[in-house]
């Protein structure tokens, strides 16, 4: 037989760590190498000793499982991470899988499943159960399904005059130049400019330009 799979467990509840370790003892090909109380603790132990697979809780003091997953993934790309948490939430599943988790299990999973997840992630690199598959599927379907579009582009209505002035402001024209171009008195131009300021809820011409570009009002 090859060497046993070295497993580490990071969880702030000792009673839960013990529970998991107890239920994994019958399996000969699994060896618990160390326990950590939080993300920081885990990373500090990993300076000296690397496991093959980490069972990682999400909610932990000091450094939580999300941060720890990101850090471990960046520093030790070969170490497999199995999230073992109370949080049953598609958004958490997606977030963690996107950030490098190799499996996502709930704490009330059957020990057989935890065992299977350890073996599968170790051999194949990942273990996706129904929870994860459904979350991923939802995401894929979400992407192809037409979602709402932001409709704010036309939310503030500008009159034709205002649009003309807006365009000229964005082209660096002064009030004087604009009034000459549009055959309006400078006071009228100033009035229109004031109106644009109010509509956009900005303070000065720079604000107008920034707004106009951000909202695609000018090219």
């Amino acid at each position: 037989m090859e060497h046993p799979i070295r497993v580490a467990i990071a969880d702030d509840h000792k009673i839960f760590r013990n529970g998991v370790i107890n239920s994994l003892t019958p399996y000969q090909n699994i060896q618990i190498v160390f326990e950590a109380e939080d993300g920081e603790h885990l990373l500090s132990i990993m300076e000296e000793q690397l496991p093959d697979v980490i069972l990682m809780d999400l909610k932990m003091p000091k450094m939580d499982g999300i941060q720890a997953t990101i850090k471990v993934r960046a520093k030790y790309p070969d170490v497999k991470i199995i999230i073992l948490t109370m949080y049953e939430d598609d958004n958490f599943i997606l977030h963690l899988v996107e950030n490098g988790a190799n499996a996502y299990l709930l704490k009330n999973s059957e020990p057989e499943e935890i065992y299977e997840a350890i073996c599968t992630t170790f051999q194949k690199g990942f273990y996706f159960n129904e929870n994860v598959n459904l979350a991923l599927l939802k995401k894929v379907l979400h992407k192809t399904k037409p979602q709402v579009k932001t409709t704010f582009k036309d939310e503030i209505e500008f009159s034709e005059r205002e649009k003309e002035v807006l365009k000229l402001i964005c082209n660096e024209h002064t009030t004087q130049e604009i009034s000459e171009k549009l055959y309006l008195s400078p006071r009228t131009v100033e009035g229109i400019r004031q109106k644009i300021l109010e509509k956009m809820n900005v303070k000065n011409s720079v604000g107008i330009v920034v707004y106009a570009f951000r909202h695609g009002l000018v090219e």
């Binding site: 509840h13 009673i15 839960f16 013990n18 107890n22 239920s23 704490k107 059957e110 020990p111």
Partner: peptide, 17 residues
Amino acid sequence: HDEVGAQLSVLKLNLNH
């Protein structure tokens, strides 16, 4: 969630045993 939840999970592991 964290305390009682973890304890219930342990309870379940023990039941498995």
